[in-house]
């Protein structure tokens, strides 16, 4: 962050290479994004793998946490897809934990929010839609495209309805990725802006400004609480929409 008045709320999203890797002219450098992806996976694994390693019938704290998340995601998934959706459980669980841990760890001061990179959320959304398409076509063949043909629509209206259904299907990965990306980006910018106000007010030297400096600080505190809520909520929304889309792959009929 630049000193004085030049506080750049975008600075936190800058990607800096830590280890330069450029094979075949491709930039595959290990950057701060990569580092935080690794940290996210490490934290999630610590909770889920290490936490469950005791295999205690009466769980400790970490095992309780792991079991709680397990049962939460499992109940969310079975709520949308019933028991047969459990074959997607590892996938939905990994997605939920990756997004949740990215969002929450991104709130730590000085950290980097992996999900504030649109390419990351877009890749996750494309992954979800690829699974939907591949599984749907592999299981139902051409019947999968019955998804775009609602029953009970008069014949002359059907081409328009099919077109609308296709557009809505294609826009799913876009909305899925943009929702998460936008929430994370906007939240972090807002936090940085209000934090920047405090610094600017205190740095201005005017006594009156010292007096009003706590106001944006209070707002920043309140926003942080809101951002924690948003971080959890967006991970949940991402997971439950994934479940809804995967359910289409299981049952393409309307």
């Amino acid at each position: 962050m630049a000193a004085g008045g030049g506080i750049d709320p975008i600075h936190q999203f800058h990607i800096n290479p830590i280890v330069e890797l450029k094979p075949f002219g491709l930039n595959l450098s290990f950057t701060n994004t990569s580092l935080w992806m690794v940290i996210v996976v490490a934290v999630v694994s610590a909770i889920m793998v290490y936490g469950s390693s005791q295999r205690a019938v009466v769980p400790g704290r970490l095992q309780s946490l792991a079991e709680m998340v397990y049962e939460f995601v499992a109940s969310t998934l079975t709520g949308v897809m019933n028991k047969e959706g459990m074959k997607f459980f590892p996938f939905v669980f990994s997605l939920f934990m990756f997004v949740l841990a990215s969002n929450l760890l991104g709130l730590l001061p000085g950290s980097f929010t992996v999900t504030s990179q649109i390419i990351v959320t877009a890749a996750l959304a494309v992954l979800v839609m690829s699974v939907v398409l591949i599984y749907g076509i592999a299981k139902h063949g051409s019947h999968f495209f019955g998804l775009f043909v609602p029953s009970g629509v008069p014949g002359w209206l059907l081409p328009f309805v099919v077109l609308i259904e296709i557009v809505s299907f294609v826009s799913r990965p876009v909305s899925l990725s943009l929702r998460l990306f936008g929430n994370m980006l906007a939240g972090h910018i807002a936090l940085k802006v209000f934090g920047g106000f405090v610094v600017v007010l205190l740095g201005s030297g005017a006594v009156l400004n010292y007096a009003i400096a706590p106001l944006p600080l209070l707002l920043a505190v309140a926003l942080t609480a809101l951002e924690v809520l948003v971080a959890v909520l967006q991970a949940y929304v991402f997971a439950i929409l994934t479940c809804v889309y995967l359910n289409d792959a299981l049952h393409p009929g309307h």
Binding site: I15, P17, L28, S29, T31, T33, S34, M37, Q117, I119
Partner: peptide, 9 residues
């Protein structure tokens, strides 16, 4: 940065 992000993701 897309390639690097996708690769490490």
């Amino acid at each position: 940065h897309f390639a690097s992000n996708l690769f490490w993701l």
